[in-house]
Design a protein around this nucleic acid. Sequence first.
DNA 1: AAGATGTGGGAGAAAGTGGTTGAAAGTGGC
DNA 2: GCCACTTTCAACCACTTTCTCCCACATCTT
Lengths: 146, 146
Amino acid sequence: MFRGNHPTRVDEKGRLKVPAEFKRVIDEKYGQQFYITSLDGKVAQVYPFEEWERIEQKLAGLSNFNPTKKKFLDRTNYYGQQVEMDGQGRLLLPQLLRESGQIKGEVAVLGNLTYLVVRNLELFKREIEEDKFTPEDEKTLDELGI
Amino acid sequence: MFRGNHPTRVDEKGRLKVPAEFKRVIDEKYGQQFYITSLDGKVAQVYPFEEWERIEQKLAGLSNFNPTKKKFLDRTNYYGQQVEMDGQGRLLLPQLLRESGQIKGEVAVLGNLTYLVVRNLELFKREIEEDKFTPEDEKTLDELGI
DNA sequence: AAGATGTGGGAGAAAGTGGTTGAAAGTGGC
DNA sequence: GCCACTTTCAACCACTTTCTCCCACATCTT
């Protein structure tokens, strides 16, 4: 399971260094193959290939004419690419995603249990500053006892 | 199995360079023959010939008077052509399809498991931007645990 | 200080591109 | 119906660009 935030950088060739913390989890549980995609073009989602296959299996249960399935696959196909980790533990991010999400230079790599999320650090920071907690948010958290 | 998006271009002669990633899969599992067709004229579907034959076999099980079969064959015959990959790994796209789907210049080649989908990159991008996820879509995905 | 982690860059291989030539198919006239 | 001309197409060749792999150095951590 991936957890937490490890800031790192994407070099000029578009290679993402997988933080050592996450690398350990990968070496333990997964292979070298990944599926990198996105739903919105803003953040890259990095799935160990085994995890992505599980999602495909779940989708397989839906009709091909299900509009949600179509939208989901259109997006993930548009942004997606299967990539292999190199000997230095780096992943080449698809060019389309680097451009649309400005995923270059300083980025945040966030653990999201079964997959990793990569996003431009500066944009992330700005989003957090702008998206304040509302009273409803606080109420929701209260009810959960957080 | 074909997966993900590999943007490429169709040259002035209408030749599609098969992205190396997909080429590897083809060399491994299939021959040099393809059947290129479409159901809507907007996107080209590129089947390794062996896969297309499987579809034909499935259709063979239906009556010739089945209206769905008739429509399907009318369309795929209208757009379809059998083509062979050249020594440089390129496929000549049927002219009809190049025109009706504006499949020229920058295109996306999308893996769709057993076949490839080719579509104009700009049109694809526009479609994704316009076709937003609705709250119902999110609910459906939630229920699947995605 | 030594090992582990992160970074950059260069050489060679692979992928991608464009053009030319010869063959084949199509067309029209005799 | 046959022949000759025209046009299109497919195969091949050669060049350019990109990418991948690997090496070496820098920096951080224990």
